[in-house]
Amino acid sequence: MRVVLATHNPHKIAELQQIVALTRPDLEVVGYDGPEPVEDGVTFAENALIKARAAAAHTGLAAVADDSGICVDVLGGSPGVFSAYWAGQKKDAVANLDLLLDQLRDIADPHRAAQFRSTIALVTADGAEHVVEGIWAGRLAHAPAGEGGFGYDPIFIPAGQDPASERTVAEFSADEKQAQSHRARAFAALVPLLENL
């Protein structure tokens, strides 16, 4: 069975393909080559549905779209839906990360709580719509660490680690990240819906 992933982001395509391979090896995730819709929603769910609807209409396939970002408690949940554009319209991941660290420069560890959130929308070929969410709790580091991942991974320290050996997501192996990430959690909630396709 083929499902189109409604993104032009190669990192997200590779990540979802790895997650799918672990849970639904019979499912082929293909990239989307159609026009990019304007993401003018103010929530992750609204933006995910905008993308999934456009991809389903363009390809005639069931479409899956993810909208995700980092939500920092002390910033009232920001950057949130603006995570990719936090430092401006260029989608500069390094500038986004640097700006967020600068904004939290004087904030102590107990107040650096954050969550990666992923909302995945599924729009089927017959127009049925479903939305699921995955949350990965943790806190922000004071400086980037690690070479893996992308986006805010170098400053996100997932909760539940041994305090003596905590690592950022960028220091995780790809397999570790795929097993725990917000997208993996959201996709786990999506799997039963895909089985009904």
Rank of each mutant, 00 (worst) to 15 (best):
T43P: 06
T43E: 03
T43W: 02
F44Q: 04
F44H: 01
A45S: 09
A45T: 04
A45P: 10
E46K: 02
E46Q: 14
E46N: 11
E46A: 13
E46F: 02
N47K: 05
N47F: 00
N47S: 04
N47C: 03
A48N: 08
A48E: 02
A48C: 05
A48F: 06
L49S: 04
L49Y: 05
I50E: 02
I50V: 14
I50H: 05
I50R: 11
I50C: 07
A52E: 10
A52W: 00
R53E: 06
R53P: 01
R53D: 03
A54L: 05
A55V: 12
A55M: 09
A56P: 04
A56W: 00
A57G: 12
H58E: 11
T59G: 11
T59P: 04
G60H: 08
G60I: 12
L61F: 01
L61Y: 06
L61C: 07
A62P: 13
A63G: 08
A63H: 10
A63P: 08
V64L: 15
V64D: 10
V64E: 11
A65N: 06
D66E: 05
D66L: 04
D66N: 02
D67V: 06
D67N: 08
D67L: 04
S68N: 15
S68Y: 06
G69T: 09
G69I: 12
G69R: 08
I70T: 07
I70L: 13
I70S: 05
C71S: 14
C71H: 13
C71Y: 04
V72M: 07
V72C: 10
V72P: 13
D73L: 07
D73Q: 15
D73F: 05
D73H: 14
D73R: 09
V74D: 14
V74G: 12
L75G: 02
L75I: 03
L75W: 01
G76C: 14
G77I: 03
G77E: 01
G77Q: 04
S78M: 13
S78D: 14
S78W: 01
S78Q: 11
P79G: 07
P79F: 02
P79K: 04
G80T: 09
G80Q: 08
G80Y: 00
G80W: 02
G80K: 00
V81W: 00
V81R: 06
V81C: 00
V81P: 00
S83E: 04
S83L: 02
S83T: 13
A84Y: 00
Y85F: 09
Y85S: 02
Y85L: 12
Y85D: 11
W86H: 15
W86Y: 15
W86E: 14
A87W: 01
A87D: 10
A87I: 12
G88V: 05
G88H: 08
Q89D: 15
K90H: 00
K90N: 09
K91V: 03
K91Y: 09
K91N: 12
D92T: 09
D92Y: 03
D92M: 06
A93L: 03
A93T: 10
A93E: 14
A93M: 08
V94W: 07
V94F: 09
A95M: 12
A95R: 14
A95H: 13
N96V: 01
N96A: 12
L97F: 03
L97H: 10
L97S: 12
L97K: 14
L99Y: 09
L100D: 02
L100S: 07
L100R: 13
L100G: 10
L100I: 08
